[in-house]
């Protein structure tokens, strides 16, 4: 099939960007979306131009590197699917596809479709860990974890940190991401000692990075490739409330 692409091109964070149009010819329905872009890029290079820069790595939907908004929807809008796992059979001949980078002030564009997600890093560095030193730990079975808690923690821990939640949110809020991280650790008994501290430090860092606020629109949950539930945002709010009470009472 043949497609028309409208792709955001931008040289670097400082310069203004704009849309460019490309033809994607002879696209096989078996290609993944990113392979389609690979093919287009090969043609662009053949014309002596610079290819469309986009992030991708594992291409099996787990590393969270790929990040593009396809027709207004982060990752293209196939349920529970990253852009790298989206296949061209979902498009039809003659379609025009608009491809844009994640849009958020906290995710400045590096180039074309590549954005800077180090804000996520800093949030996790602020408190997304359990302070254990290598070796100074009890036997793994010394602390039983109820299966329900462990399963729920796993639901949260599935987050691949791609940032689609931020990209989808009209407020560019990172709540779903931070909530997944906070919930995962607060659900595990090992995470209890730092529970209060973690809730404060991660939320504060999230604010500092310039992410927006949650207005409970639910777009984040809808585009999350790991289908992480909005429940975790409520859980994070609860964690934060708990932390406030603890701080207030101490």
């Amino acid at each position: 099939m043949n497609l028309k692409l409208r792709v955001w091109r931008q040289d670097n964070a400082e310069e203004a960007g704009g849309f460019e149009e490309y033809e994607a010819l002879d696209i096989s329905p078996d290609m993944s979306f990113l392979e389609m872009l690979d093919v287009v890029n090969e043609d662009i290079i053949a014309d002596g131009e610079e290819p469309i820069a986009f992030d991708s790595d594992c291409r099996e939907g787990i590393c969270g590197t790929c990040s593009m908004v396809i027709n207004g929807v982060p990752h293209g809008g196939q349920q529970g699917t990253t852009a790298c796992q989206l296949h061209m059979r979902h498009f039809s001949d003659g379609d025009t596809i608009v491809i844009e980078p994640w849009r958020a002030t906290a995710f400045p564009v590096h180039r074309d479709l590549i954005v800077d997600r180090t804000s996520f890093e800093r949030i996790q560095q602020a408190g997304g860990f359990i302070s254990v030193r290598t070796g100074s730990v009890p036997d793994a079975n010394a602390t039983p974890v109820p299966k329900e808690d462990s399963d729920l923690a796993m639901d949260a821990a599935q987050c691949i940190g791609c940032g689609a939640c931020v990209a989808a949110c009209k407020n560019a809020s990172a709540m779903l991401f931070v909530a997944a991280k906070v919930s995962h650790l607060s659900l595990m008994p090992q995470g209890q000692p730092e529970r209060t501290r973690r809730a404060f430090s991660m939320v504060n860092q999230m604010d500092e990075e310039g992410f927006g606020n949650c207005t409970v629109t639910g777009s984040c949950e809808a585009v999350c490739p790991k289908e992480i539930s909005l429940d975790f945002i409520a859980r994070m709010n609860r964690e934060y409330g708990r932390a406030l009470l603890k701080k207030g009472c101490s």
């Binding site: 359990i130 793994a140 039983p144 974890v145 462990s150 399963d151 650790l185 995470g191």
Partner: peptide
């Protein structure tokens, strides 16, 4: 395994 469990890795449980 001890190390990872202490870090909060949500291993499958019984």
């Amino acid at each position: 395994i001890d190390q990872c469990a202490a870090q909060g890795v949500p291993f499958a449980r019984e």
